[in-house]
């Protein structure tokens, strides 16, 4: 078996608060193969976004930093890499599209320049060549009259168009990995669909592996090959996307899947209430107590869950879950 493109090993990311390091991501390991699409799912604050930033060495520091573990990109540990090396990787081999297209572009430079400078920095292209490349990218991401639009400033574009520009920036150097952190959360539903269509086309054309971070299970089902569920800074389930949607194992995952509202025909006058998982994600500070972090909210909690934290155990090839009940059933 060949080594995966990206292999994260026992990653721990902590934020300093006063004199303590409070871990927000704990013991996280996952692999990403070339050309694969991995979904990372979880509620706000579960550590998805900070994990994504850590892959680029962009954890805001201080107060945050990677306190343990490795991020092996083609066998090279990026945690140990210096700023100069990281700058070679960023935007070139691993690039990222952010959640907020409205504020993620620099307001004082044209969009053409913002795409072109990335190509200049990484490929050493001349101004003219980089500009031509920027225009080409704009047309690839579906922006009409790219020649003219390249001279526009971000404020002259809609949110959907700006996100297309962000994608153009991310892809201009044909990276091996594209990280998309909730790329459509701030956009209208119709625009969301367009952006995901674009992702699918670009995945075909560029062959980049994609890490898609979202809390939208529907998007995960459509877009990804494999899904990893995070809760309170830990991975609690992982598996192929079909299994994840059809047969979620962790009580939290089944809760998430049940949360998708379904349109029933005919619409009843007295609809069932929407499903919700009771309670809230525990604060990182409260996670030092023993037991499963999900136990206080779990409908199927057992006495053991409150005392011991279950580790991730394989259920089937490529399928893992961190839940005592599932592991006991499987054993």
């Amino acid at each position: 078996m060949t080594a995966p493109l990206l292999s994260v090993r026992n990653l721990e990311i902590a934020f300093r608060s006063g004199r303590d390091d409070i871990p927000v991501v704990r013991d996280l390991s996952f692999d990403l193969g070339a050309g694969e699409t991995l979904g990372i799912v979880g509620e706000s604050g579960c550590g998805k976004s900070i994990t994504a930033l850590s892959l680029l060495g962009l954890v805001p520091s201080p107060p945050g930093r990677v306190t343990r573990g490795q991020i092996l990109f083609q066998g090279e540990d990026l945690v140990q890499a210096g700023e100069r090396r990281l700058n070679e990787v960023r935007g070139n081999e691993i690039s990222m599209v952010f959640q907020e297209p409205m504020t993620s572009l620099n307001p004082v430079y044209t969009i053409g320049e913002q795409i072109a400078e990335t190509a200049r920095v990484h490929f050493g292209l001349s101004r003219a060549k980089a500009w031509a490349r920027a225009v080409e990218m704009l047309s690839l991401v579906g922006i009409p009259s790219p020649n003219r639009r390249a001279h526009d400033y971000p404020h002259q574009l809609s949110g959907g168009m700006r996100q297309r520009v962000m994608i153009a920036i991310a892809l201009v150097c044909e990276p091996k990995i594209l990280i998309a952190d909730e790329p459509t959360t701030a956009l209208d539903v119709t625009v969301q669909a367009q952006i995901f269509d674009l992702f699918n086309d670009l995945r075909r054309d560029f062959g980049a592996a994609i890490i898609l971070i979202t809390h939208d299970i529907g998007v995960v089902a459509q877009m990804t090959d494999r899904v990893m569920v995070m809760y309170a800074g830990r991975k609690i389930e992982e598996g192929p996307v079909a299994d994840f949607v059809r047969d979620p194992r962790h009580p939290y995952t089944s809760g998430l899947v049940s949360c998708i509202p379904r349109l029933t025909m005919p619409p009843s006058d007295d609809p069932e209430p929407l499903f919700e998982i009771p309670g809230v994600v525990p604060a990182p500070r409260d996670l030092n107590r023993p037991g499963c972090p999900f136990a206080p909210r779990c409908a199927r909690v057992m006495p053991r869950c409150r005392d011991e934290n279950p580790g991730l155990e394989p259920l089937a090839p490529g399928r893992m879950v961190a839940c005592w009940q599932e592991q006991e059933v499987a054993a």
Partner: peptide, 9 residues
């Protein structure tokens, strides 16, 4: 953050 993620010096 975008500028940093692009790998600009």
């Amino acid at each position: 953050r975008t500028a940093r993620a692009k790998g600009l010096p």
